[in-house]
């Protein structure tokens, strides 16, 4: 193995975080996020990254149950938060239009 699993994981997380931040900044320019949208999208994205970090680490240490629990405990709230955040952004947009 050229790179260990944990090295690949943290590299990927770095790329993911950068892409998320760029996207948030770009969409904010376009849609002008409210404080609530920022909070929902920010926490949701953080949880999403954390969920990935947790679950892949659990697979790497050989505890698949911890990985699936991680997906449930962190992943589902993360998706709900991001989707709700998206809705608030779109709602705001409709209001402004």
């Amino acid at each position: 193995m050229v790179f260990t699993g944990i090295e690949i994981l943290f590299f990927t997380l770095g790329v993911m975080v950068t892409l998320i931040i760029i996207s948030l900044i770009r969409y904010n320019k376009k849609y002008k996020f409210s404080a609530l949208s920022w909070a929902l999208l920010g926490i949701g994205s953080f949880l999403l990254v954390f969920c990935l970090a947790w679950s892949v680490s659990s697979v790497l240490e050989g505890v698949p149950r911890a990985a699936s629990m991680g997906l449930m405990v962190f992943g589902i709230p993360a998706i709900l938060l991001v989707l709700t955040g998206r809705r608030t952004v779109l709602k705001n947009q409709l209001k402004n239009d």
Binding site: S58, V63, P64, R65, A66, M69, G70
Partner: peptide, 9 residues
């Protein structure tokens, strides 16, 4: 403690 059990440790 319960979460530790639920997560399979």
């Amino acid at each position: 403690r319960e979460m530790d059990i639920a997560f399979g440790y």
